[in-house]
Design a protein around this nucleic acid. Structure first.
Lengths: 205, 205
DNA sequence: TTCAAAAGTGTAAATAATTACAGTATGGAG
DNA sequence: CTCCATACTGTAATTATTTACACTTTTGAA
């Protein structure tokens, strides 16, 4: 069932209001915006929109217009800590104080919801330049207990922390830079994978 | 002036609520969450928080707790169209219908507020691989009437649309791929710059 | 001990938002 | 022309929310 022109206007206003304010408008606010002098004028539209399934007026209270197709903007956004260097030590032990700050990411853009322990890392050096990861880039690292060969990982190798591609050759795991100037890293002792790079972000000016 | 432990709890709850719902809680909601039986119990905290400057109770109406340090999550987020190829023709003439979809970007992450006519472009080909822009990447292109030499731009050159670095040599502008396998592009006729690449985003799996 | 700040309870009043009900006007479809 | 959906007006009642006022309890410093 299609929306009428007026219903579309009301619906668009609700979406625009939510975009600017984070929550839905109250009926009096819709009244003022459209110059409708009776709250019932608006209520009629809201009931029509509800019966057509584009909004929901479920709970009691104020500002309770729900838009199933438009989750609260805040609900899609996640805050992740930004680290200037790969934090040493096991990921669980990373003190939040070591973070340089926070950045907000929208799930719609990422295409997935980052796990709670994910973090952003400011890349230093050009050892991954042939994989398109340059100095200054921001990478989203997500903890992954079972990384696959070929993935780019943040790893602790013999106590040193690096961003490298994970490779498996004849049963042995090692790390490979994506820059011919850097050698392969074969772990002498332990190889601790802190997480897998899921997203690369570069700001330019 | 520091917050007391209880005030901090209330403040944290307000922030968490805003994160999940996009707008601030009402006083009864705060009451229920903390088991406070009088609305005045909450109002006292709100006035304390206001006098300490962390919230504002400016206007009349419901759910009117403003948090200056935490703008409405939705207000920071912008929707941009995603194009599968650089749209041909002058940027103004691009039909919105040509977009493949929309993606949401958070200004905190980008570090700037994209101009309204900005768009996202899905990169095809590896002509910019030495600049760290690979096939499948998403780039944010912002219209810029005065691009500078050295910037990476989306351009129409002799009717063809491409992503290249803008170079100026002895007064002449031309476009340069960041891949030795590609030739420089010297405009025969017109060189129309559609916009400057401000951000590169790569999703991995 | 005395005092003041912090954190409440309890009640009432004022304001805001929602819902309900009885209408009116207009523009098609039949 | 009649009927019906749409889009309202106007008013009142109901429910939510905010604000105000008087008072209590606890805690920690002077």
């Amino acid at each position: 069932m299609e929306l009428t022109a007026r219903q579309q206007e009301i619906y668009d206003y609700i979406l625009a209001y939510r975009r600017g304010n984070g929550c839905s408008p109250s009926i009096p606010e819709i009244q003022r915006h459209f110059g409708i002098r009776s709250p019932n004028g608006v209520a009629g539209h809201l009931h029509a929109l509800e019966s057509k399934g584009v909004i929901r007026l479920s709970s009691r209270g104020s500002r309770r217009i729900d838009v199933p197709a438009d989750p609260a903007p805040g609900a899609r956004v996640t805050s992740l800590p930004v680290f200037g260097a790969i934090p040493a030590g096991p990921p669980q032990a990373v003190a939040p104080a070591a973070a340089e700050g926070d950045a907000w990411l929208d799930e719609t853009l990422l295409g997935f919801r980052p796990k709670p322990a994910s973090f952003l890392l400011k890349v230093r050096g050009d050892s991954m330049k042939d994989a398109g990861i340059l100095d200054g880039d921001l990478v989203l690292v997500e903890p992954n207990p079972a990384p696959r060969a070929g993935q780019i990982v943040a790893a602790l190798i013999d106590g040193e922390s690096t961003l490298k591609r994970l490779v498996k050759l004849r049963g042995a795991w090692f790390l490979k830079a994506e820059n011919p100037a850097y050698p392969e890293l074969h772990p002498r002792a332990d190889l601790v994978i802190q997480g897998v790079v899921r997203t690369v972000i570069r700001r330019m000016n």
